[in-house]
Amino acid sequence: MNWIKFTIWLSAIYGSYYGLLISWDFLGSAKSKNIEERNELTFVETETPVRLQSGTDDAGPARLESPIVSSGGVRIKQMFSLAQQEAIEFTRAVSFS
């Protein structure tokens, strides 16, 4: 058996398998169309929209304080200086292997 015959046989097997699956699906969908009672899931929106006021008071907008100063990337020299200042929190060991 050469490669061309093998490819033809393999294509025929795949084609017949997927053809059988597609025909099985069409036969199954034809049977389900005859059922009068269908179970359908519906959602009803009972909430009413509410317009929110902006967060500005007489004193100005309310701000949340965060301990994060910067979330951007740093260069390697900056990282070593941050490590010397103990500004980096280590959560696990770093593996270089």
Rank of each mutant, 00 (worst) to 15 (best):
W9D: 06
A59L: 01
W9G: 02
T7M: 09
K33N: 08
N2W: 06
S54H: 00
G72F: 06
R63Q: 13
Y14I: 13
T42M: 03
K5C: 12
T46W: 03
I22R: 09
V69M: 03
S66Y: 08
V44L: 01
W3K: 03
E65G: 09
M79C: 14
E36A: 14
V50S: 04
G55E: 14
E86T: 07
S95P: 05
R51P: 07
T48A: 15
A87R: 11
E36F: 07
N34E: 02
A93H: 08
S70D: 07
I4F: 01
L64Y: 01
K5H: 11
I22M: 09
R75E: 11
K5N: 14
G28P: 00
L27P: 08
L20T: 09
I35R: 15
L41H: 12
G55P: 05
I13Y: 08
Y17S: 06
L10Q: 10
P61G: 06
F90E: 02
I68T: 02
A59R: 01
L82V: 08
Y17E: 06
E45N: 08
T91G: 02
T46I: 05
T46E: 14
S95V: 12
G73A: 10
A62M: 11
I22L: 03
K5S: 14
A83G: 04
L20G: 12
S95I: 13
L20Y: 10
R63V: 10
V94E: 05
N39E: 13
I76H: 03
I22N: 02
Y18G: 11
N2L: 00
S16V: 15
K77E: 14
S11F: 02
R92P: 00
N39G: 10
R63H: 03
T46R: 12
N34P: 02
K5I: 03
L21H: 03
I8T: 04
L82C: 07
S97F: 00
R51D: 11
Y18F: 12
A12N: 10
K33R: 15
N39H: 08
